Simulated scan of single mutants.
Amino acid sequence: MPQAPERHVFVYGTLRRGGRNDINRLQPPPEYVGMGEVRGVLYHIDWYPGLTLGGEEAVTVVGEVYRITPELEAVLDEIEQIVPGADSEYFKREVDIAVQGGTVTCLVYEVNPARVKDRQVIGHGDWIVFHTS
């Protein structure tokens, strides 16, 4: 049986180390690669954030990059409530993330733009700093 291709994920909110849904507590365990950055807008939705990629208001959003298995990706899809069609809370994107002087193509869970209307923009790009302040 061929091994599944290597996949990476960029986590910027509750899936970060110490967060409510800390990815390091999930199974099968991920492998930490390093801190990463992407340009986007971070929103305070409720007890969790949402990220839209790019845009005129974009700032540098920080997060963690992990190597994951297809089994863990399925767990993440469930946490992020991925469903087919335009009503999904998040959409899965493949994005180049700056990691320790290089780039890594990562899965990013981008919030559905319809879900962030009238939500608070986090003027900086660090959910952990915002959430703990």
Rank of each mutant, 00 (worst) to 15 (best):
Glu64Val: 09
Trp127His: 06
Glu71Ile: 02
Ala4Pro: 12
Val38Trp: 00
Thr60Glu: 09
Leu51Trp: 06
Leu51Pro: 05
Thr69Lys: 06
Asp118Lys: 11
Ala98Trp: 10
His8Asp: 06
Gly85Val: 05
Thr60Gly: 08
Leu26Arg: 08
Glu37Tyr: 11
Met35Ser: 12
Val11Lys: 01
Arg67Leu: 03
Arg93Leu: 02
Gly54Glu: 03
Ala58Gly: 06
Ala98Ile: 14
Ala4Thr: 06
Tyr43Asp: 02
Gln81Cys: 11
Gly63Asn: 01
Ala74Asp: 10
Ile82Met: 03
Asp118Pro: 04
Val129Thr: 13
Pro84Lys: 03
Glu31Leu: 12
Leu53Thr: 01
Arg39Thr: 00
Gly13Ile: 13
Val33Ile: 13
Val59Tyr: 07
Asn112Ser: 15
Val121Leu: 02
Gly125His: 08
Gly34Glu: 08
Val59Arg: 14
Val116Tyr: 02
Thr52His: 08
Thr60Arg: 15
Arg93Ile: 00
Arg115His: 07
Leu107Val: 12
Val38Ala: 00
Glu73Ser: 04
Tyr66Glu: 04
Leu72Gln: 00
Arg25Pro: 00
Val41Gly: 04
Val108Ser: 00
Leu15Thr: 08
Asp77Arg: 01
Glu37Val: 10
Val121Lys: 14
Asp96Pro: 06
Val104Gln: 05
Val33Ala: 01
Pro29Cys: 06
Val116Gln: 00
Gln81Trp: 12
Glu110Ala: 10
Ala114Val: 13
Thr52Gly: 04
Thr103Glu: 15
Val11Cys: 01
Glu57Ile: 11
Val111Ile: 14
Asn24Thr: 08
Leu76His: 07
Glu94Thr: 14
